[in-house]
Design a protein around this nucleic acid. Structure first.
Lengths: 228, 228
DNA sequence: CTGTATCCATGGCGATACTG
DNA sequence: CAGTATCGCCATGGATACAG
């Protein structure tokens, strides 16, 4: 891969960015991850060797900086790297708008919960510690039960019962909750159809959609329309 | 490459777009190329086999349409494909802003002339047929002399002398004219330093920079400033 | 926790030649 | 002009184990 041999800035940019996983590493950094295992958590199918290699490349070309070896290693975007947000945003908007069909392999409860966790609107939750349970009907038993614990400004996602009383329980499939999260399916439609069900006191039940919200990209309008 | 296994729209987009050359094929289509050999001209280092493969993939995923086998084959972007302009534009702006250093292999007189040809502002040229010669001091003899012929709304670029009288001659290096074209170097600076010289009648000489112009991305501001 | 080392299979892709 | 066919290398990157 001796580059593209082109003067075009698009080509020069893609020489760096078209390598597998690279753009997703940048996405993770833009979303705020800084440590190696934090990045791994958002990129579970990427081998640590490859992640290491990509981080070195990104550092070499000046997209990220690595904190000195004295402190705990941390990766942060430089200005050059931060400006890739325009590219990532454009890719995300295009992707959510035009690529609606997800394969079975694209559905991952860990990633979904990890993703939702990032943008849980804590200000809509009760002041006191509140636990919301999520149950997937269609995943392996080990990954079918989750608990979201919001206490003050802290959000935790557990795959083991934290042992507190739950305010409500969301019963759904991984595919359905993923569709709602991405904005392929609206909360009202999902609830009406029963694709997502909420158990709990009536007042709480009505709050749950606002507690969870949707991904930032869910607001992107879809071409054919009719997204539920 | 079994995909990324992620629900994230950025990942779904990159599953298609991170393959080598793909984004450059899209760029060529966005710039108006429609036929196979037209695409090849903008992608000279891409093998025809690979171009064919990429076109098939892009058609399969709905980014391009191929005209029926009855007519002369032509490739056009669908709406889905056309909306990739946001991605390509973001890549181009980031690339021209942050990747200024070009290697020797990135400099190609064919590509530069082909690229300039696309956006020659014919309305600034004289009404009658006008020929501008370009001579590179640092390229192989076969690729050192070019002629830009503007007649009405038609622009032609030749690497053999068309045999008409030339209004002026641009003498420069491939690297310098490339820098001017990309906007890494301004016309005034290039002329003052002698990096680009124009031979011809004084009135014409002053017009030449406006006849050639600069790439659309040249207007993107640069980080460190000081771009000539 | 933060990576590196090693191994290996796969297949991507570059080069060239050739066909309708 | 518009591709397809074939070949073969070598690098990519996936998996696993291990080190500081």
């Amino acid at each position: 891969m001796p580059g593209y041999g082109q003067l075009c800035p698009v080509a020069k940019a893609m020489e760096i960015l078209d390598e597998r996983w690279t753009m997703l590493v940048v996405r993770e950094l833009l979303l705020g991850s800084t440590h190696f295992n934090e990045l791994r958590r958002g990129l579970p199918r990427m081998s640590p060797a490859l992640l290491s290699k990509r981080l070195h490349t990104l550092e070499r070309v000046g997209i990220i900086e690595r904190s000195g070896p004295t402190a705990r290693p941390a990766y942060t975007l430089t200005t050059k790297g931060r400006e890739l947000s325009t590219v990532v945003d454009a890719l995300g908007a295009w992707g959510v708008r035009w690529i609606g069909e997800l394969g079975e392999r694209d559905l991952d409860p860990h990633l979904l919960m990890w993703d939702m966790r990032r943008t849980i609107p804590v200000e809509r939750w009760p002041r006191s510690r509140t636990v919301l349970a999520v149950e997937f009907a269609d995943t392996a038993p080990r990954t079918s039960r989750w608990w979201i614990v919001v206490a003050g400004d802290d959000v935790d996602v557990c795959d083991v019962d934290p042992g507190h009383v739950t305010a409500a329980t969301v019963r759904t499939t991984l595919r359905a909750l993923t569709a709602v999260w991405r904005g392929d399916l609206s909360w009202p439609t999902a609830l009406r159809s029963g694709a997502v069900m909420v158990d709990g006191p009536p007042t709480t039940r009505r709050q749950v959609p606002h507690w969870l919200g949707q991904s930032l990209l869910s607001a992107v309008p879809r071409p054919a329309g009719v997204a539920g």
